[in-house]
Amino acid sequence: MKSENNFGKWTPLDRGGLARRVAQDIPEGWYVNLGVGVPTQVADHVPQGREVVFHSENGILGLGPAPMADKIDRWLVNAGKQYVTLVRGGSFFHHADSFTMIRGRHLDLCVLGAFEVAQNGDLANWSTATPGAAPAVGGAMDLAVGAKRLWVVMDHTTKDGRPKLLRKCTYPLTAPACVSRVYTSLAVLDVVPEGFRVVEMVPGLSFNELQARTEAQLVQGDANGGK
């Protein structure tokens, strides 16, 4: 998708591009939980030969890629209830052990999608508080408080163009002050005391153009690229 406007031209990252961008930053040896949607795709983009161990809430370490249609094992699903595979060295365990890994700060990283992220790191990703709808939280609140790092991956704005990086979340919180980094379709941003620090933007996009699409306060990355 090519965006044209009064300021210039750039291409937002699509879902695959976003997943690939996140995968670049995951170092060898990390234990990582991936949420449903784009975060799940991150596993497909870890460079060959780099060992990263993926965790699933329902008791799996060492998640592998989706199986071929004729190789499906009906006893092996991920937290999104999709069929998966197990890599060599993988293991199974029960739910209390699985959430000991999550809540006991044993996971190096969790990558989740979000409706909204506030500049203090507040996360809203479980409920849009629609009247009459049954609330459903799954493992989101445990992952948000338990992983050593929480990265969010999402579009920079909603489909109708409203900002998702806010001064204050409008939807019910998943957890306060838990997000450390956000990968959007337009930029990579770190949560710092002054707001979101811009680490990287898609080529052709200016800081002012990014700020125009962001309600939260942005701050320029440092000379070293903000990493």
């Binding site: 809430e57 739910h95 959430f99 999550i102 609330p135 459903a136 939280v137 799954g138 445990d142 338990g146």
Partner: peptide
């Protein structure tokens, strides 16, 4: 749920496992 025919207690998944 909408018809009010069932009561729901939503519990985070890890809290559910740990309560058990």
């Amino acid at each position: 749920y909408r018809a009010g025919e069932i009561e729901l207690e939503v519990v985070p998944q890890g809290t559910l496992a740990e309560r058990l």
